[in-house]
Amino acid sequence: MAHHHHSENIHEVDHEPLPTKVYVGVLVGLAFLTFVTVWVAQFDFGILNVPIALAVATMKASLVILYFMNLKYDKGFNAVAFLAGFIFLVVFALPTLWDRETRDALDPDRNVIVHHTRPGYPPQVTGEKPAEPKAEEKAAEPVAAD
């Protein structure tokens, strides 16, 4: 809480709570955003479906973090400690997905193609210079059956 009254009593804290109406407001906001995300899910926005759902979820998460967890009025270092987790998560997620997206790319140093025939399994290095795939092979991109 922002207001700390320092008394001679070292054994007890003296913090002023937020008014109840703030918490009620956040509750109403969370309920409304839940309604929005469920309502909007019935429409198909193609590749935007997930970004829209995550945007609403992040709005809800911000309300919870700032007001219910009180991070808005808390010591700044607590925010640093918590938000560092999200930065570490980005460091983990981005290179992993970068790898995922470039699995089929040519490795120019070794002049080989690093690809997967079974997605998610260890990559195979053919050692061969990749041949241009035939037109029908391109068309019939596998749905990776077992």
Partner: peptide
């Protein structure tokens, strides 16, 4: 502060699953 640091590790545990 100790608990916020614990929550940071919780982000990482669930984060692996989200990745």
């Amino acid at each position: 502060l100790g608990f916020w640091i614990f929550l940071c590790t919780e982000i990482l545990m669930f984060g692996g699953l989200f990745v």
